[in-house]
Design a protein around this nucleic acid. Structure first.
Length: 292
DNA sequence: CTCTCACTGGAGAAGGACGG
DNA sequence: CCGTCCTTCTCCAGTGAGAG
């Protein structure tokens, strides 16, 4: 069965599920939104990608399932030559909240502990492929009630991830999926360090000295592995943390800017807007409307 | 693989005006 | 007081070319 290059369903505002299928022939790297307030399940049908999640780069192959949690920094990148085909499903808290309370709590907890990249044993792959096939069919022909099937199918896949997480979920193949060449390890170390200390001022030369490499080399390697420049990455995690504080506390925007590492308030404002496309105050008022 | 050098665009600091 | 939105200027991060 062949499908058009691109199919999608789901209205972010109204539906708790969004499903999208895409085939790309040329090189492609993900655009602006590097995290979002909903879960994402990503299934690679064909091709090979590098997926950078939080602080680690993973090699993702056809048949792998990737689970991105809410508000988790991620980015996909090209690996070698062109074509890849993937399906992504977004679902939000609402979908899980439709479950009975014990199941909801169990799911949320399990997903919170899930490995981001799941490489299932061959025997279990047919199950996933069947589900993906069903998503595609429903998406393609959109018969009456297809959104019910989408919702149900996505929930099934989420359940699979949750079970995988609970069973200790780390197959032999998985252990080797996070890229571990020296440069990948170095970049991951730096990313982890930045995640822990983004509140402090960050300077390339100090960072380089801390990790025993030259500044020039560090900025090159970091970009290669993560897809982000160091300053971009620091800004992203700072703004992400600022968003969390705006949602979950009543601290003033000025305090938050300082707390996440921006010495300069107006620069914080500019950065916040360029990343989230809204001002900090606007973000706070919008996120307090929908209770998440 | 690891690093150096030189160049340049853009990030970031500083400060002021203004409105709610 | 709190936040937005300008402008101006400085300097450093990012990068192409290339070497050990």
């Amino acid at each position: 069965m062949t499908y058009p290059h691109h199919m999608e369903y789901g209205v972010p505002a109204g539906e708790s599920v969004y499903v999208e299928y895409m085939r790309r022939d040329g090189p492609y790297s993900m655009d602006s939104n590097h995290w979002h307030p909903f879960y994402e399940i990503y299934y690679l049908i064909e091709g090979r990608r590098t997926y950078f999640i939080r602080d680690t780069a993973y090699s993702v192959e056809a048949g792998d399932l990737v689970l991105i949690r809410r508000h988790e920094l991620h980015k996909t990148m090209q690996t070698g030559e062109g074509a890849h085909t993937r399906v992504i499903a977004h679902f939000d808290e609402q979908l899980l909240q439709s479950l009975p309370k014990p199941e909801y709590e169990w799911m949320t907890d399990a997903l919170a502990h899930c490995q981001p990249v799941i490489r299932l044993p061959l025997a279990a792959r047919g199950y996933v492929e069947g589900h993906i096939g069903r998503l595609m069919e429903e998406l393609h022909s959109q018969p009456a009630g297809f959104m019910l099937v989408l919702r149900q199918t996505v929930l099934d896949l989420a359940l699979l991830c949750a079970r995988h997480a609970q069973s200790g979920g780390r197959t032999e193949a998985e252990a080797s999926m996070s890229l571990t060449s020296p440069i990948h390890r170095k970049a991951s170390e730096v990313a982890r360090y930045l995640n822990d200390s983004f509140e402090q001022p960050v300077h390339l030369h100090e960072l380089a000295a801390r990790f025993y490499v030259s500044p020039y080399y560090l900025s090159r390697v970091f970009k290669e592995v993560t897809g982000f420049t160091i300053i971009d990455y620091v800004n992203l995690i700072r703004i992400k943390e600022a968003q969390r504080l705006l949602r979950e506390t009543s601290l003033s925007v000025t305090d938050i800017a300082g707390q996440v590492g921006f010495g300069n308030f107006s620069h914080f404002g500019k950065m916040f807007k360029s990343i989230t496309r809204m001002s900090a105050r606007q973000y706070r008022s919008e996120s307090s409307q929908k209770v998440r």
